[in-house]
């Protein structure tokens, strides 16, 4: 599969602190790439660089084969949307207005609100099930409701490429699967998705391309069936487990060993 988004030999740093060095990755066009890895290994940092909100200290990101900075910023925003891990809700903004802000890259000085904008906002709120909250202030929502509103904001952007940093945090288990099913639908409709997830079983069930990161490096990538092994989980997370087959989806599924973190766990 051709790559819609590529990173070549990235070095990513905050001030002088290098978090990622010499990392390359190809995001397959039309795929659902899921990135997993322990806390602080650099997943969000990588996602920011792919979304050009963090400028690489070295290396480059290519969108459809061309350096991403060579495009106008609004042009990129019509191709690629990004949900940050902890977005900031402006004071007193309503759900409808927040979702509407996702339309900015489609607007111009004179055409600040077209009928297509109304339709996109309504569609995005419907897809995430937040229509009933439309006139509520975002600040007065529960964490999970707010998360869905932010996903709606990103969907309203109507891009072919979606980067989602932990879209399921704060959600109860049913809403987690709602969001994942929504992602799967978007993927089936032909969009390219990249998401960071913490739940390995969810990742294995939904990804077409699973990327495991550790300490700023990509340790393994490919179809979940090839990537998700007991050795990998132990190497990356320091967790000993067994890999079974998910009886529903047929994807690999991990079950931690009893007392898995103890090194004498062998004497079960």
């Amino acid at each position: 599969m051709a790559s819609i988004l590529q990173a070549e030999r990235l070095r990513l740093a905050y001030d002088d602190r290098v978090v990622i060095d010499n990392l390359s990755i190809d995001i397959p066009d039309g795929g659902f790439t899921i990135i997993v890895g322990p806390n602080a290994c650099g997943k969000s940092t990588l996602l920011k660089a792919l979304a050009r909100t963090l400028r690489p200290a070295a290396g480059r990101v290519l969108l459809a084969g061309k350096p991403i900075d060579s495009f106008r910023s609004k042009h990129v925003a019509r191709q690629l949307a990004m949900l940050p891990q902890s977005p900031i809700s402006p004071e007193a903004i309503t759900v409808r207005d927040l979702v509407g802000r996702g339309r900015y890259p489609h607007q111009t000085l004179l055409r600040q609100w077209s009928r297509a904008d109304d339709a996109a906002v309504a569609g995005a709120m419907m897809a995430t099930g937040v229509e009933d909250l439309a006139d509520r202030p975002v600040g007065a929502l529960s964490g999970g409701q707010r998360q869905r509103v932010w996903i709606a904001m990103v969907l309203a952007q109507q891009t072919g490429l979606l980067l989602l940093d932990e879209p399921t945090t704060f959600l109860d288990i049913a809403h987690q699967y709602d969001v994942l099913e929504l992602c799967a639908r978007l993927h089936q409709d032909g969009r390219t998705l990249v998401a960071v997830l913490h739940d390995l079983n969810q990742a294995a069930r939904y990804a077409t391309n699973l990327v495991a990161m550790s300490r700023g490096e990509i340790v393994a990538q490919g179809p979940p069936g090839d990537v998700l092994t007991a050795e990998l989980v132990e190497r990356v997370f320091g967790l000993r487990c067994r890999v079974l087959t998910d009886p529903e989806a047929g994807s690999p599924m991990i079950v931690p060993l009893a007392s898995a973190r103890r090194y004498d766990a062998g004497q079960r």
Binding site: R52, T53, R78, A81, M82, P87, I88, P105
Partner: peptide
């Protein structure tokens, strides 16, 4: 909405 979101939106 934060610099990151603003940048992502162009």
């Amino acid at each position: 909405m934060g610099d990151e979101t603003a940048d992502a939106l162009g």
